[in-house]
Design a protein around this nucleic acid. Structure first.
Lengths: 281, 281
DNA sequence: CGGCCTCTTGACGCGCTTCAATAATAGTGG
DNA sequence: CCACTATTATTGAAGCGCGTCAAGAGGCCG
């Protein structure tokens, strides 16, 4: 096991023909990325010290339909998506699938495998993908070695937790229409952040997969896409989507299914009196 | 800011009358807990080195209805629940509440504040509570200092992420009855783990709060509790619950609202051929 | 005791699921 | 290249689960 860990991280001197352009060339399947590239992908600020690092992380290529890791498999690696689109799938105890999210470039996946040392979900390539292997222990060790990198990692995990919280909130309180609108806007933002068009894009997943992700049936998803298209807010041609009215979609995101949740009744007093926080003397 | 950080962690020599029984006495509001006690609460294995540590963490006491931290407030601390029951509440952009969970003894709260350096949710005491302040930076530093403690922290966050994933899955796919049954069983387990009875307990939250947590209305929650009581599976007298048929409840947990999700159609091929994982030489 | 809040229970309606049939598209082999 | 099949998407009709509205009952506290 420790040998498999060490196999994905090397000093470039031990590797044939390593160049500073690692990760940029398009041919020759296993590429490598430097620590700096990893940080850029994860949106972590890069310090000068990191640029000196000679750590490299191996790429893996997967074809559409292949599985990066599966449920129950011993946890070994985190992965960063370098290119392509995946789905992350959870299975409940009776074999029903539930799609957790659709990772793409820059997303860190496999975090839920840290607990119990076994993956709790499955990552499947929706099209040809390049992912970067990052052994957890290496990440932790690197985190210790470089200033503020460890906090950046905690940040990432906190962000992931937040994303999941918002998802739960949406599933619990939003109408089907609002969920679909959110889904489209969210995709739009992520595509835009990657430099693609945020107005026009191709869905990489089926209606069924969208439904599973949003807690809806595929028919409902299809109907709502048609309905949004009838209103002129979007255009749909199979998996090709055009957003015509982003503002309109954003309006829709707030619709509960008529339900008004707890009508704002928060505790007013904020904390025990400040003097109870004893000062050091 | 750094002064407020340091104020909650001290060496015992600087504190009046610190004793090894810190955190056990019931009078005198701000108590202190040692690193070892923190780890025990969080279910983190304790090493000998930790027992030597002279770090102590301050307790805070809150009365029912008081707010430990609120949304948007600058993130300073993580908190560990020492006693009592809380609710963690998220607000969407239009003031609608959504309850994320009900933290109790041993739970680490405030994690979602790490990202953006501001709390994304609000923690409110449902009854009188004791919580322990744990400055994030101290936790990180301690994690570096003691072997395997940092991985334990990552473990905790991974576990929290997993919990939220399961919650989202349940909200998206389970019937109202299944959600209520799950909720009761989950509470039961947690009470049992704390040494209380798992068969008979008092709910600390209202029907409305349960509903918000489960993505249901208070009426539905009430109706389902009544219905379960009619079946004899539980007994309900206001907030007092008795579980008569745990096995029966567990059966109910798997019921979709008739819906059969994606009928098991996973990718079979697991990985690119193993030889692509280049070995170091 | 009266006022307030929480919980219960009923009647009704809507949103989404379910079932079913058809259409559009992609993949496969001759 | 075109059939042939499998997969995916669309659309309609019917049913039901759960939300909504409303009224009443039971607890808690001043």
């Amino acid at each position: 096991m420790s040998s498999s860990l060490s196999s994905s991280v090397q000093s470039p001197s031990s590797v044939f023909s390593m160049t500073p352009t690692a990760g940029r060339q398009r041919t020759g399947s296993p590429l490598w990325s430097s620590l700096m590239e990893i940080c850029q992908l994860l949106q972590i600020p890069v310090t000068e010290a990191m640029e000196e690092s000679d750590l490299v992380f191996q790429h893996l290529h997967y074809k559409a339909g292949q599985c990066i890791y599966t449920i129950g498999q011993p946890f070994e690696m985190l992965y960063i998506v370098y290119s392509g689109f995946l789905k992350s799938v959870m299975l409940d105890e009776y074999g029903h699938q539930y799609i957790l999210n659709f990772p793409m470039r820059g997303d860190l996946i496999g975090i839920d495998g840290i607990y119990n040392k076994a993956y709790a979900s499955e990552a499947v390539a929706l099209c040809d993908c390049d992912v970067i292997m990052v052994p957890l222990q290496v990440l932790i060790d690197v985190g210790k070695a470089y200033d503020h990198l460890d906090t950046a990692i905690y940040n990432l995990m906190s962000q992931e937790l937040l994303r999941e919280q918002k998802m739960a909130s949406a599933l619990g309180s939003l109408s089907a229409e609002a969920r679909v609108a959110r889904f489209l806007l969210n995709l739009s933002e992520r595509f835009a952040a990657m430099g693609y068009s945020g107005k026009q894009f191709n869905l990489r997943m089926s209606r069924e997969e969208i439904g599973s992700y949003l807690g809806l049936t595929l028919e409902t998803v299809s109907r709502l896409l048609s309905s949004l298209a009838d209103n002129g807010m979007i255009s749909v041609k199979q998996r090709n989507i055009v957003l015509n009215d982003v503002d309109g979609l954003q309006e829709l995101c707030h619709t509960s299914p008529t339900r008004t949740r707890l009508t704002r009744k928060l505790a007013s007093n904020t904390a025990p009196s400040q003097e109870m926080r004893q000062e050091a003397k």
